[in-house]
Amino acid sequence: MSKQPLLEVKNLKQYFPIKGGVLGRTVNHVKAVDDISFEVYEGETVSIVGESGCGKSTTGRAILRLDEPTAGEVNFDGEDLLSLNKSKMREKRKDLQIIFQDPYASLNPRQTVGQIIEEVLKIQNIGTSSKDRREKIISLLETVGIGAHQVDRYPHEFSGGQRQRIGIARALSVNPKLIICDEAVSALDVSIQAQVLNLLKELQRKFQLTYLFISHDLGVVRHISDRIIVMYLGKVVEISDTQSLFENPQHPYTRALLSAIPSMNFEEEKRERIILTGDVPSPIDPPKGCRFHTRCPYKMERCAIEEPVLNSVSDGQRVACHLVEKGAVDYTKIPVNS
């Protein structure tokens, strides 16, 4: 993967102001995403995982400029999205689409399925006549398994899984290069989740799509991803290819996350469980040094002072942790809380 990345996020920051007082002055900021960088290459599926509030959805929205990021660069296809003016950005949206978590909230209840897709086709100047567009809409819906007779129905007439397929059809309609799936299957039943995930994979092969997959469900992520980004409190703590991450997690937070996956393998009963204590600190006033140090079982003095940076530990695996820097002892051999 030495080629040019399709998406390159550089030092992205997203701070949300907290307004207070009678005059509505900005009293503080929620540092939802705080200086993160990563790349996504063409044709791959990269997942962002982390617990609620770690900034993964915010990252997705910031890339698409659905919220304007505070600082940083989002290079897409060789162009910095954040420097584009509004109309240029609107044109560019053809190449980047998003699928949201809640299939009930992401479709406008007052538009029929046909209208929902037609709108985006019209804006992005796809199709010459309305007849032409209609045919395209029907073929798109059929691609995702929705019949042609359902084109003129309203979203409330569909089930959750069907709505998510409609969302996918809408995202596909403009032939995007990148689709951000923001918890795209979390709201669905497990059986439907599998269907939708398989559909996404099939579509990826068919249309050479690149996915940025945002999820908190490690099972889903393992199934679909080529590479995984682990986030904690607005920071990237580990980036790794899927196999290395699951077989050889480096960051203590990643290890804790993985140990929380319920296992069906009863022989594996003695597996080490790392149970984190305390809550995630507030992103308004995050801890100094390593953000994870307040909950880390292997915390050192240095962790509270110096912020670790992402360092390569092997080909395709980068970690931000003082414990795993080159030449350090293997912390995983140290018993927890010794």
């Binding site: 698409l64 609107r90 949201f100 406008n108 209840p109 709108e119 985006v120 804006i123 992005q124 809408r170």
Partner: peptide, 24 residues
């Protein structure tokens, strides 16, 4: 999210407000 969807589609700010938001 359907307002974000509209933005993601590239619908102009004015149309997002009047067509997608106000009607609902």
């Amino acid at each position: 999210d359907y307002i974000r969807t509209a933005h993601a589609k590239g619908v102009s700010e004015r149309l997002v407000v009047y067509k997608h938001a106000l009607r609902n």
